[in-house]
Write a protein that binds this DNA or RNA. Structure first.
Lengths: 203, 203
DNA sequence: AACCTAAGTCACCATCCGGTGACAGGAGGG
DNA sequence: CCCTCCTGTCACCGGATGGTGACTTAGGTT
């Protein structure tokens, strides 16, 4: 008590907790203050208003799985691989990261639903990391100069994202059982075929 | 006034209007009755409660673009094409349909965000139509026995759906300008390469 | 010890939500 | 003609929201 910094951090932590437990829709002045065990007036005192709180949470939080770790892991795979291997390693790593991070899923969903302070900042962060990812992918696929790697990456990662978000509320999508590991193995295999078909066509 | 059926239809129409104008989040007893110019108590009298209203709207509405028209159009394309042509025609038709139907976008988004009466029914409808679509695709791709057409269709259509939903609030995704026609042409071309690479690899 | 500022508490505001009960009035049947 | 049923109106409820003003209390300074 009587510790401004601790109170501030309790509030910021409460935002993260609510994001994981109830989703972005559950975030509000009342719910956050309740979760933090703190009077809501302190939110206004320390962060101005709710957008201010979200802005600060978004800019100083480690709620987003690090794509850089993803890239580094992928680059550390034994070389020389097929030119499609790096791409597939990246995409599979993406699946693993997001499926295991409920708060990342909430952020992605929040970006889809509405434009607010939180979604703005998280979208910017992700865009920047995504650009690095695409760059790594393009530079690592030497013979991929004639295909639009960025567009393909966008389309495939978007598909994976959609399916992961959808699996939260639904069991199936177009007949694929996205709630089971078998379903996801089908998705991954389909993705492999698609990527290999276009990147390793010379083989 | 004093016409139960007209009042009922006014209420149902108001649901559709709000869905298009404000999205699924804007739907509520108060907003619907306000939009319909009707007292909200009539909603409870005629539909029981809000879920009941949504159920009736979902089951008696033409808010969802007809996939059957999509399939028929695709099948009417000049044959014999590459085995990938039907698939691409279907996917491109899907893009056109959903991009031009704000209410369909809202439904898809609603299915992602929460499970309610409306999303349940619309999801069921779409799953059934999607199954037909996949079936048409599989039976029209003779040499596609060894690849998982359903999983690929799911992944690609999921990607398209995600990008279309995202374009509502955001301009870019992974560097692709999904708010412009140029960006969507890149997406379509990337999709073509992916599909042709895996379906026409024998050529 | 007196005091002042910052931290924390409490009560309250207007507004919206989904939902309900009581009542008015017109139309049709006896 | 009168009575009844049905459509529609209106006021209200409990609860939740975002937001504000006035208060108490603790910690450090002088």
């Amino acid at each position: 008590m009587r510790d401004k910094e601790e109170t501030r951090s309790k509030i910021l932590e409460a935002v993260g907790k609510i994001l994981e437990e109830e989703g972005f829709q559950g975030i509000g002045v009342n719910s956050v203050s309740r979760k933090a065990g703190v009077d809501k007036v302190l939110i206004y005192r320390y962060f101005g208003d709710l957008p201010g709180l979200l802005r600060e949470f978004a800019s100083s939080g480690d709620y987003w799985p690090s794509m850089h770790g993803l890239i580094e892991n992928a680059e550390r795979t034994p070389l020389p691989p097929e030119s499609s291997d790096l791409a597939l390693a990246l995409l599979k790593g993406y699946i693993r990261e997001i499926r295991n991070s409920p708060s990342a899923q909430e952020l992605l969903l929040g970006e889809l639903v509405s434009r607010n302070e939180l979604s703005e900042v998280s979208a910017m962060k992700r865009e920047r990391q995504g650009a690095d990812l695409i760059e790594a992918l393009v530079s690592a696929a030497p013979d991929a100069g004639k295909v639009d790697v960025a567009a393909m990456g966008a389309l495939l990662s978007a598909g994976l994202t959609f399916l992961m978000l959808r699996a939260r509320n639904s069991d199936a999508y177009l007949g694929i059982d996205i709630s089971s590991e078998e379903g996801w193995e089908r998705i991954e295999r389909a993705m492999e075929e698609l990527v290999k078909g276009v990147l390793d066509n010379g083989q």
